[in-house]
Amino acid sequence: MDLVVFFIASVCAIASAIAVVAQKNPFVSALALLANLASLAALMLLLEAQFVAAAQIIVYAGAVMVMFLFVIAYVGPRGEIGPGARKPWLVALSVVAALLITVEIIVVVVGASLGEVASVDGDYGSPAAIGKALVTHYLLAFEVVSVILFMAAIAGVVFGAGGRPVRLSTDQVLAKEGESAVARRREASRAALEAARDSTTGESAR
């Protein structure tokens, strides 16, 4: 049973990883990455890491990839890459990067003793065990990462606002400038609308 799940998940992981780079459509590419993350979560389940598997789906699939897709969907309707967009130096660089990663994997796999099956106790990989490890043994790293993430969030807000004035909602305009300001704005937009209508009817009459 475990072996069957392992092979299905591995095949899915490899196939979706190839699809990520082979697909021309960025939206489909991102979906393939999502499938890859889900297959990895299945592999983690086989390694008794239920919490990490669930967290992988919630964090990567549920939050990170949503943002990827959000951006891709907004950027263009069908931003497909044609054959002309492939630059030779990029191809060369990607081959070098792939070779380096392959060498690294080989070194790690050969260097590690993968001969025997590791034995784990029943509590291994449970949320309680991971929580305990995070706030005792890895407390410093945990706190440092949380500070870094917090800084990243603030940086995101600052860059996202970009120094532009924030557009106010009707409620906020009301609170700030009173009824007359809202009425003035409404009047202005009505005038603009009427001007637009006049110009179109004028054209059709001609």
Binding site: A38, F51, A54, A55, I57, I58, A61, G62, A63, V66, P127
Partner: peptide
Amino acid sequence: LVVAAIGSLGF
């Protein structure tokens, strides 16, 4: 967590 994970895939 599993329910939350499946729910987020539903999005």
